[in-house]
Design a protein around this nucleic acid. Structure first.
Length: 890
RNA sequence: GGGUCGUUAGCUCAGUUGGUCAGAGCGCCUGGUUUACACCCAGGAGGUCGGGGGUUCGAGCCCCUCACGACCCACCA
């Protein structure tokens, strides 16, 4: 970084017509070849700035939101690099999980059938298909291993095309350190972390009712659930009292099909209406099952009928009541979402006959049938009352979640341990320890942690993911002994327990009495994604690297995944390393379409990023991202991209012009682009003083990771530099001024200094145009220069007051207005004019009078002090407009 | 119902500890081919800072309240 002082012997010459076209490819190629953004493993931790970047879902599509968020992070990173940090900036791919499974199914026309054997010579039936219509029936069943191989093949293709977009965007990622959440390294890391959690009693298995997606046939964690409003209806059903009175107790339910799964009725203990019922029993309509009437404070007197039927299981309250009131389990819904064949607790023949009609039906059909039955029998006591109510769905699913009792693995996340000073408190404290940008995002995190209802359900009944690295012993009776968990040694990871065999066993013992069985499940995709700092930092493979980059400095991400990715990453680091995973979190907002809705694929209003990059240039698109503040949802606005493109073009053109006046002598101290000693003109000095202030402000902003503020400071200065300063000093810089060679040298040196500093100020945002200009003129890359500092600029200003620039610019506007008002060309000479201004401003104008008269083509200028805050022009005498040259351009 | 953010010119947004803070860009209007830039330049018009209270010598900026918008959580008998 010492090459700022030396002038290159050779350089790219300045083009006649500078253009943005092709700069992305050109510079990406150069940077890549020079390994400009490669991490240097040789430095110490305090010199490193490490970033835990969001790994995009490789099988999804990149959308404009990605471009937005990644650009913002890149600006922060580039600033840190210019501050001399050794940047560790990897980018991974999240290629593990359901989205990949679905894409592979469509692309290759296959589906996974774990019961099939591996076929080493397998060729998929199709390639490149993307027809959503391909039905499961038309998909060729393949073994799990074949399926996973196809997943790996396809993700490689997808990742390549994503990388192209990110390179075009100008992200300063170190591609040598990219990672995948499904490759062997990640599987080993994820499995090791799980085994250590198991060892530390942070992971445990439990057989319990869990939210279950009947389409994907997998358990679903709280973080993956969402509410959707669905039409429903209260059905009022009468239960018969068993005291011989024959009277009925009416309950209201939106799930009448769960009537056969009823285990009790419940009302609030203080509810006057049901006091005499508590402790008694009633029989259910249709099925004639005798159930108790119980009291529990969770029952709400004002809801439904005020008394509810408890079924196993209709909702979260049912689970609570079932557990706390120690009720039996009467499950009717199977893992496929259909009614189970048997309901042995129904004792009456009539009840059994009715139930047999439900067996095998979907929830939807069963509800219809039960309502018909109850209507026929007269048990449905009144009209059905239609309502709209929220129903829980898996975020990727389209059928409501059901409760299914199953054995699952859990990881502690504070949802269960809510004791004073327990895990939940620890995790809330971690949130406070983290520096959030913007700060208020911390409350979203805390909100989520405080609202957790249970531990993290981490097992999934899917295929493409990281397998649980465990087996269970099989007893002599042939029953799986879930309490005897067999684990592999860490050195053997990654393993697939359905293929590998635990120590001390032979393959022949798989599934036989006295043998072993594999855990068939895979880890939640977040179970691996939550380890991105460990994956990228080499926790399981490169301890030396890990010690230099972890905990990382920055996690950039969207606010929508604070509850998932951010939270789960904090959980894993807290459990594994007893540390925060990073010190700063930069939270970007969403992109909203013109209707102020989040742009998302499902809403069909997504714009593809590559088209935007081509149309507006990467610098233009980055500018749009750079103008948006952290955390703030931002309108998708191509107008902003056009402005960004304009800025980038202006940088090219203004640079070309400013460099065209001739050389300025080099700075002997090597701190500036030209020798500050020759900057003697007051206007030039004032400009550098003003630029010094801009540098100070931009630095303060960037130190706070506020790229938007930094850009907001640099941008107006640059436009004023172009429109006012350059225009004012043009003639002088050419040597056409009374100040002669000294005045010209001063202007040229100031232009060089100011231009060079501004290129560095813009480099984090306008990456391609600044690099292009740098290459015309300076050695090396602008992106590895040091961030500018204000002190040499102030020294060069030699005490000149920066406000002189503003005074002269104001006067320039007044002079121009004379011609605008007269509707004549700005080239029209002013034969004479008197300018009246306050004494302070007047002194400024006197100091720059020669430049001002050159700008305005003023032949006779009179400057007069007056008691005014404005700049007044009077006694104006305009000359003849210049003769128009014939139009012969183009 | 709980929480968070927002409401400033037609549009997109700045306005950092209350005292040139009423701003920028776009759009609009009027001019101008000014050899760096027509992917341009110059000039101009536009707002009772969501409503209502309050604190203060003084409030987009602080407090209360209401309205509207957005998101997260809870609610699913």
């Amino acid at each position: 970084m010492t090459d700022t002082a030396s002038r290159p012997d050779t350089g790219t010459s300045i083009p006649d017509r500078p253009s943005l076209e092709g700069l992305e490819d050109k510079w990406d190629g150069v940077w890549s070849e020079q390994q400009l953004y490669a991490f240097d493993p040789g430095t110490t931790r305090d010199q490193v700035f490490s970033v835990d970047t969001p790994p995009p879902t490789a099988s999804g599509s990149l959308h404009v939101g990605h471009v937005f968020g990644y650009s913002q992070a890149d600006m922060i990173v580039r600033y840190q690099r210019m501050r001399g940090k050794n940047v560790f900036y990897p980018l991974g791919w999240d290629d593990n999980g359901l989205p990949t499974e679905r894409r592979v199914q469509n692309y290759f026309g296959v589906r996974c059938d774990p019961s099939l054997p591996y076929d080493a010579d397998f060729t998929p039936p199709q390639e490149g298909g993307d027809n959503k219509s391909s039905k499961a029936a038309n998909q060729l069943p393949v073994s799990r291993r074949n399926f996973i191989e196809l997943c790996e093949r396809l993700t490689e293709i997808d990742e390549k095309s994503f990388e192209e977009v990110f390179r075009t965007l100008g992200l300063s990622v170190d591609w040598n350190h990219s990672y995948q959440t499904i490759n062997a390294h990640s599987r080993a890391t994820s499995q090791r972390a799980f085994l250590e959690n198991l060892e530390a009693d942070q992971a445990y298995q439990s057989e319990a009712p869990t939210m279950w997606d009947v389409t994907y046939r997998t358990a679903v964690a709280q973080a993956e659930q969402e509410d959707r409003d669905r039409d429903g209806a209260y059905h009022r059903l009468g239960f018969t009292r068993t005291d011989g009175s024959g009277s009925t107790v009416v309950i209201a339910t939106t799930r009448p099909e769960l009537l056969p799964a009823c285990v009790a009725l419940v009302a609030h203990p203080d509810d006057e209406r049901y006091q005499d019922l508590f402790g008694s029993t009633v029989t259910s309509p249709l099925f004639g099952v005798e159930v108790p009437v119980l009291a529990h404070s969770l029952a709400q007197p004002d809801k439904g009928a005020g008394i509810a039927m408890i079924c196993t299981f209709g909702d979260a309250n049912d689970v609570t009541w079932w557990r706390e009131l120690e009720l039996p389990t009467r499950s009717v819904i199977g893992r496929d979402g259909r009614f189970l064949p048997e309901a042995p607790w129904i004792s009456t023949p009539e009840g059994q006959a009715l139930y047999s009609e439900l067996a095998g039906l979907t929830v939807f059909s069963a509800q219809k049938r039960v309502v018909e039955m109850a209507t026929e029998s007269g048990d449905l006591t009144s009209e059905i009352e239609k309502i709209s109510h929220p129903v829980k769905f898996y975020e990727n699913g389209d059928k409501p979640l059901e409760y299914v009792t199953s054995r699952q693995w859990y990881l502690t996340n504070g949802g269960r341990d809510q004791s004073e000073g327990g895990l939940r408190d620890d995790l809330i404290a971690r949130g406070k320890e983290l520096t959030w940008h913007p700060a208020y995002m911390e409350s979203r995190y805390r909100n989520w942690v405080e609202g957790l209802a249970g531990d993290w359900l981490i097992s999934r009944q899917r295929f493409f993911g990281v397998p649980f690295p465990i087996w269970y012993a099989v007893g002599a009776d042939g029953e799986t002994d879930y309490d005897t968990v067999l684990t592999p040694p860490v050195e053997s990871l990654p393993i697939d327990p359905t293929i590998d065999v635990p120590a001390g066993y032979e393959e022949a013992q798989r599934g036989v009495p006295g043998g072993f069985v594999a855990d068939p499940d895979i880890l939640d995709t977040w179970g691996t994604s939550s380890l991105t700092p460990q994956l990228a930092g080499g926790w399981n493979s490169d301890p030396e690297l890990f010690s230099k980059v972890y905990p990382m400095d920055l996690r950039p991400q969207g606010h929508d995944i604070i509850r998932t990715w951010l939270f789960s990453t904090i959980v894993r680091s807290h459990l594994q390393q007893d540390s925060l995973p990073w010190t700063h979190a930069s939270i970007n907002g969403w992109i909203l379409d013109p209707d102020r809705k989040k742009m998302s694929k499902s809403k069909g209003n997504v714009v593809t990023p590559i088209g935007l990059l081509e149309q507006h240039g990467s610098d233009g698109v980055r500018y749009w991202a750079g103008r948006a503040r952290q955390g703030v949802d931002t309108a998708f606005d191509e107008g902003q991209m056009k402005i960004g493109r304009r800025l980038a073009i202006k940088i090219l053109n203004a640079s070309k012009f400013a460099l065209g006046f001739g050389d300025a002598p080099a700075d002997p101290a090597g701190r500036l682009a030209a020798d500050p000693a020759v900057v003697t003109d007051p206007l030039d000095r004032a400009l550098l003083a003003q630029l010094g202030k801009v540098v100070e402000q931009a630095t303060v902003a960037f130190d706070d990771m506020d790229y938007a503020r930094a850009l907001e400071v640099a941008e107006p200065f640059f436009w004023a530099f172009c429109d006012d300063y350059i225009e004012l000093v043009k003639e002088r810089a050419h040597g056409n001024s009374a100040s002669g060679e000294a005045g010209a040298a001063s202007a040229r040196a100031a232009l060089a200094i100011a231009l060079e500093v501004q290129l560095r100020l813009f480099a984090p945002v306008v990456v391609f145009a600044t690099e292009e200009v740098w290459s015309w003129w300076r050695g090396g890359s602008v992106h590895t220069q040091s961030w500018p500092v204000a002190e040499p600029l102030f020294e060069a200003a030699a005490g000149q007051d920066a406000s002189l620039v503003a005074s002269v610019a104001q006067a320039a506007i007044s002079v121009r207005r004379i011609k605008s008002d007269a509707k004549v060309s700005q080239k029209t000479p002013i034969l004479s004019v008197r300018i009246v201004a306050s004494p302070t401003v007047l002194a400024h104008l006197e100091a720059a009078a020669a430049d001002l008269t050159a700008l305005g083509r003023i032949e006779s200028l009179e400057l007069v002090a007056g008691e005014t805050d404005e700049i007044i022009t009077e006694d104006i005498e305009l000359g003849e407009p210049p003769v128009k040259a014939p139009r012969n351009k183009g």
